[in-house]
């Protein structure tokens, strides 16, 4: 498929344009920081969206993969003096293998059993990271050295902005192409009805495993970048709450929409900063906003808005 007439091309161009213009409008490093976090969350969510939105599989443990990536980068670079890129690749390979091994039994589960299975996996990862404190620094976390690639060390929010932006664009591009490929079609068939898809000759388990592993690796890579960027990580990065945040971003933005994942990540990253004005009522408002959005825009923000603007789509 030529990159020029791929589906979602307009969206991708709009995203690139936004990325180019945004730095002119960001007054200081704090705003850059928020945008970088949005970018990192978007990358994870785009991967997770392939799993939730397209393959129709829930994962309440994806932060576990994010955490493994982050800790591999942290431990290998700080304790063992590895180069950051090598640590990142090893983290991703380990997550790839781990997710591949558990993918088959996990992907056999349905609905709530799948939710529980992935949740349990994430919780176990967090417990290991918390308990093995000689390696991970325990619940207080550990510092992570700066990122370096070929001797160059990116430093400061503006430099990181462009790195994350490039990775984000690449992830969006990958996601859009995957969805348009035969794999994407097979996935949509799986989402519709698994048994029906199987009858039509789609190897359901194979595709589900593929997407599960891919989304886990994306989460691991984002985790590595996050660790180097913030310079300090704790087991909370792999925790249940973080997993839930990621799923919420995907669903809020709109399932089965790559740009929905980006929008969801943006909203849920900015929201806690805006809600600080409510002080003691922060949680109350946050909970209410979640419930409200899910009830009134249950398909998520981007699909709902898209429907509003053009009645064409389903």
């Amino acid at each position: 498929m030529s990159p020029l007439n791929m589906p979602g091309r307009n969206g991708l161009l709009a995203l690139i344009a936004t990325i180019m213009v945004l730095p002119l409008m960001l007054p200081n490093a704090f705003y850059f920081d928020i945008v970088i976090l949005i970018g990192l969350n978007s990358i994870v969510c785009i991967g997770l969206n392939l799993l939730i939105g397209y393959a129709g599989q829930i994962s309440l443990g994806h932060a576990g993969f994010f955490g493994i990536g982050a800790y591999f980068s942290a431990i290998l670079t700080s304790t063992y003096g590895w180069p950051a890129t090598a640590a990142m690749v090893v983290g991703a390979v380990v997550v790839g293998l781990l997710s591949f091994i558990i993918a088959r039994p996990i992907m056999k589960l349905q609905g709530h059993y799948l939710a529980m299975g992935t949740l349990g996996l994430g919780v176990i990862i967090t417990i290991v990271l918390t308990q093995e404190s000689d390696l991970t620094g325990g619940p207080d976390g550990m510092p992570v050295p700066g990122f370096s690639i070929f001797g160059w060390e990116p430093y400061g929010e503006t430099v990181w902005y462009w790195i994350i932006a490039a990775v984000l664009v690449a992830t969006v591009w990958l996601s859009l192409n995957l969805i348009a490929s035969p794999v994407g079609r097979a996935l949509r068939a799986v989402h519709g009805s698994e048994i029906a898809a199987e009858t039509l000759g789609v190897n359901v388990v194979k595709y589900k495993v593929l997407v599960f592993v891919l989304s886990a690796i994306i989460a691991s890579l984002a985790g590595s970048l996050f660790a180097h960027y913030t310079g300090f990580i704790t087991p909370d990065t792999s925790g249940f709450i973080h997993s839930i945040q990621l799923v919420t971003m995907v669903v809020l933005g709109g399932m089965a929409s790559t740009f929905g994942a980006v929008a969801g990540a943006a909203i849920l990253t900015i929201l806690p900063q805006l809600l600080t004005v409510f002080h003691d009522y922060e949680h109350l408002v946050f909970g209410a906003v979640l419930i409200g959005t899910m009830i009134f825009m249950r398909r998520g923000l981007v699909p709902t808005l898209a429907d509003l603007f053009n009645g064409r789509q389903k």
Partner: peptide, 30 residues
């Protein structure tokens, strides 16, 4: 601590505070 980092940057860069009296936990402080 994952929440701490954006707030620290906000306090330093955006609120431009003169001094920080903060950090209930060791993790947040580190």
């Amino acid at each position: 601590p994952a929440n701490t980092v954006p707030f620290v940057k906000r306090l330093i860069n955006d609120d431009k505070v003169d001094i920080l009296l903060a950090g209930s936990t060791t993790g947040s402080t580190m």
